[in-house]
């Protein structure tokens, strides 16, 4: 569960990225966040992962008050979140396998069981044959799938993706969206930001619209 109440985010230069945000996302829900660039979509996701802290207001993620979390507790919050970042954050100096295994190494998995999970995650995103490939040799769509595999390999209860389809061909976009839907179907809470246009295909999902830092739905 993710719950925002009266959340404001003001940057030191006075810019108000988010104003009085209130919403609740139930366990197992799939929600889209839309809005023009600069509307505050990314900032909202960053608040969930404690990458940014709110100026005021409280944010509850999995019964933890993220806004009051100590710095030393943040890593353990993030381990329960699967995040697909805008800018991907792939490590290009290591293989696909080594990129995906990183979250498991961080959690202290043994090599054997970690390898099994990595293969399962790569299988789900259709990259099983490319374990040993270097990320630079992958297409844009494949790189995005790699990011998704890394986000889900630790079997998080919440999956967050920041504009996962922005730079992809329409065919890839459908592919990626179907992948998120399949995670939603097995009970994962899914939260995706996206520019408005793509939503027409998914009318059955809840949509939060942001405009100039405010929710407009």
């Amino acid at each position: 569960m993710i719950s925002f109440s009266n959340v404001y985010k003001r940057y030191p230069n006075g810019f108000e990225a988010l104003k009085n945000i209130v919403f609740t996302i139930k366990q197992g829900e799939m929600v889209f966040i839309t809005g023009n660039s600069g509307a505050g979509k990314s900032t909202l996701l960053k608040l969930i992962g404690a990458i940014e802290r709110p100026t005021t207001g409280s944010i509850i993620v999995n019964d933890q008050n993220v806004s009051k979390l100590k710095n030393s507790a943040i890593p353990f919050l993030r381990r329960n979140l699967g995040m697909v970042f805008q800018g991907q954050k792939i490590l290009f100096d290591r293989s696909v396998f080594d990129n995906v295994v990183l979250p498991l190494q961080i959690c202290g998995f043994e090599h054997q069981s970690a390898a099994g999970r990595v293969r399962a995650a790569l299988d789900k995103v259709g990259l099983l044959g490319k374990e040993k490939a270097l990320p630079i040799t992958l297409s844009g769509g494949e790189q995005q799938r790699l990011c998704i595999a890394r986000a889900v390999v630790n079997r998080p209860s919440i999956l967050i993706a920041d504009e996962p389809t922005t730079y992809l061909d329409p065919s890839y976009t459908k592919d990626i969206m179907n992948m998120f839907k399949s995670f939603h179907q097995v009970g994962v809470t899914v939260l995706i930001t996206t520019p408005a246009a793509e939503l027409l295909e998914s009318p059955q999902y809840r949509i939060l619209s942001l405009s100039h830092g405010e929710l407009v739905t």
């Binding site: 992962g49 990458i51 030393s72 890593p75 353990f76 919050l77 993030r78 381990r79 995040m83 970042f85 954050k89 490590l91 100096d93 990183l102 979250p103 961080i106 959690c107 890394r150």
Partner: peptide
Amino acid sequence: NEIEVSKLIGATSNF
């Protein structure tokens, strides 16, 4: 990069 990504996906400072 590696440090940043590791922090983003839940690495502790000790790790």
